[in-house]
Every structure is written in structure tokens, then in C-alpha cells.
């Protein structure tokens, strides 16, 4: 933790960086914009954290919440909804133990996201796992994928 912060601060000082370079580094080392890291760097460099947040929330490349190792995106378009994406989503929430307002599991292994439509309605319901689209998903298939990912870890 402290090593990362030192590296980020060194990079800032050496390369006449600015708030943005610090944020890029935080995203690189932590995978998201960690509030703790921002506040500590802000204190160290005497820059107010509000400036960091203003910039971090501006770009979609920066994530304000930690993201898991595996990103599971469940399509919530109408066709998928009718084909039972809600059920899959509910079951996944249970299985991964993430509540409605959070997205990432405690062990940082999975991030569960919803998306409006991935445009593959013909094979609904659709779930994208780490960017790869899987069609005609059901709970059993989903569980198999999850255990595969768990085993890979």
C-alpha cells in the first residue's frame, strides 16, 4: 500500500505530473480510484481531494468503486428480461452474495453489472463474462461458468 503511494508520488514529482497523472496511477495500481489512496496522496501533496474527485468522476475510464477480477455483465434488455435475465441476476446476487446497491464481491473476485442491451437478442438471455458474450444462458450454465472462474483463481 505505502509502496504504491510512494511510487505514485515519485512519479508525480519526477514527471511534473498533475492530478490526472496521479489518478491514472491510482487506477493502475488499485484498479479503481480508492478514496483512501486519494485522501492520503492529497494530504501528502497538499492538494484538496475535491479536485481529484471532480476529475475522477469526469472520465468513464476511472472507476469509483473497486472492480472484481472477473466482470459479469447481465443484459437487461427486454428480450433478455422476458427470457429470464432477472432470475439469473437474482440467483447470481445470491450466489456471489452481493446486494442490490453494490456490484463487487467481498473477495474482489467478481463484479456483477447490468447492461441495457448488448444487441444479441436472438440468443437471449445474454450474459457477458469478461467481455465474451454467452447466449441462451440459464442458471445451470451460469453456475458452471462461475465455478470454472473460481477454480481458475
Amino acid at each position: 500500500m505505502n509502496e504504491c503511494l510512494d511510487k505514485i508520488i515519485d512519479n508525480y514529482l519526477e514527471n511534473e505530473g498533475n492530478v490526472l497523472t496521479i489518478l491514472q496511477d491510482i487506477e493502475k495500481y488499485y484498479g479503481y480510484i480508492s478514496e483512501d489512496a486519494v485522501c492520503r496522496i492529497a494530504r501528502e501533496l497538499d492538494i484538496h481531494p475535491s479536485r481529484f474527485f471532480g476529475i475522477a468522476s469526469f472520465y468513464s475510464q476511472f472507476h469509483l468503486k473497486p472492480r472484481g477480477k472477473n466482470i459479469i455483465t447481465i443484459c437487461r434488455g427486454t428480450p433478455c428480461h422476458i427470457k429470464g435475465s432477472e432470475k439469473i441476476l437474482g440467483r447470481m446476487r445470491m450466489e456471489l452474495d452481493v446486494s442490490r446497491d453494490e456490484e463487487t464481491t467481498e473477495d474482489q473476485l467478481f463484479t456483477l453489472e447490468e447492461v441495457n442491451c448488448v444487441g444479441a437478442c436472438g440468443i437471449s438471455p445474454v450474459v457477458a463474462i469478461n467481455g465474451q458474450v454467452h447466449g441462451e444462458m440459464d442458471i445451470n450454465k451460469m453456475m458452471r461458468e462461475i465455478s470454472k472462474l473460481r477454480a481458475d483463481n
Partner: peptide
């Protein structure tokens, strides 16, 4: 000189907030 608040987000959802809301 306090810089307690700044603009965050963008588009219609731009909002003046303290850091991390």
C-alpha cells in the same frame, strides 16, 4: 481557499459535491 467542493460527473448529471460525495 478551502476547495471543499468541486464539479463532478458530466452532462446533465454534473453535480457540485464534496469529494467522493
Amino acid at each position: 481557499g478551502a476547495r471543499a467542493i468541486d464539479f463532478s460527473y458530466k452532462g446533465l448529471w454534473t453535480k457540485v459535491t464534496p469529494p467522493f460525495e
